[in-house]
Design a protein around this nucleic acid. Structure first.
Lengths: 141, 141
DNA sequence: TATTTACAAGAATTAGAAAACATATCTTTC
DNA sequence: GAAAGATATGTTTTCTAATTCTTGTAAATA
């Protein structure tokens, strides 16, 4: 479903949502250690997210990545789109170019149902909201 | 979600379900042409399916691939599993090793819902049943 | 206050692994 | 002997990973 890059991006953003703020920046090494993902690979992903203004960063001593109040209001979908492309949820599940409700493939309806469920979560909930859920339910990442 | 190989496999099997039978074999070239997929790549996939006894084949002149009555009773899930592995539907959507209902990741519940929907289709419906739906609704592949 | 120094992100390059795609040869069957 | 799958090998492309160098910032120091 998601690429590895995208999985790491989601986890990193949620991690930052919980552990960072304007005055509490976190460097790549710490994040990579906490999530147990490849350091340099994660660094690249964070740079991509930074370039898209989905996470904030400060260079230099005491610097690192963090989520600003603005960042926290972004829907999680933006993170997914910035890594895996905007059409990840629009493509046919078995790869047909012209699969839609008019010409559905055999799996179209089941898939559409899911797509809407997950899309609802990603599109309408902000990073902040998802992260708050994480806190509440003792969810791990 | 599915690999290209798996997408091609699903489409090829459904194509065979509709257009072939014991006396009506279809050669790789024809299938690849109909589905507009790479010939030699598809050939390899069909051989994998054949080795797993998910499709039937006959060599020599007039030979080709087809689905036996037995093949038609196989759930589509077997096709997916034989190409993309058995655990494709059991893995956490953001890659956490110990994500389950006890320790759910933030997307766990939404994903579980989908997994069950799609799994129902793949596991409990035979290739024959899915293919019949295709015929009924003028679905394309 | 100006300058140095260290730290951490940014950017570009290289390398390795895996997936996708292609070809050639062998084997079976008609 | 010709047709068609089976097998084995080869190439290309994409994805993932690692390295190195550059740039910017903060803190220390003279």
């Amino acid at each position: 479903m998601f690429s590895n890059s995208c999985k790491y991006a989601i986890r990193a953003v949620l991690y930052l949502a919980i552990h960072s703020n304007e005055t509490q920046k976190i460097d790549t090494k710490t994040i990579a250690g906490a999530l147990e993902v490849p350091l340099y690979f994660l660094a690249k992903i964070l740079q991509q997210l930074s370039k898209h203004n989905l996470v904030s960063s400060v260079k230099g001593p005491g610097g690192g990545f963090y989520l600003s109040e603005q960042n926290l209001e972004i829907p999680l979908q933006k993170v997914v789109e910035s890594i895996d492309g905007e059409d990840i949820f629009q493509k046919c599940i078995i790869g047909l170019p012209n699969c839609d409700s008019e010409n559905p493939c055999p799996l179209h309806n089941e898939y559409t149902q899911f797509r809407e469920d997950l899309s609802k979560l990603l599109k309408h909930q902000t990073i902040k909201e998802v992260a708050e859920n994480v806190d509440l339910n003792g969810i791990r990442f």
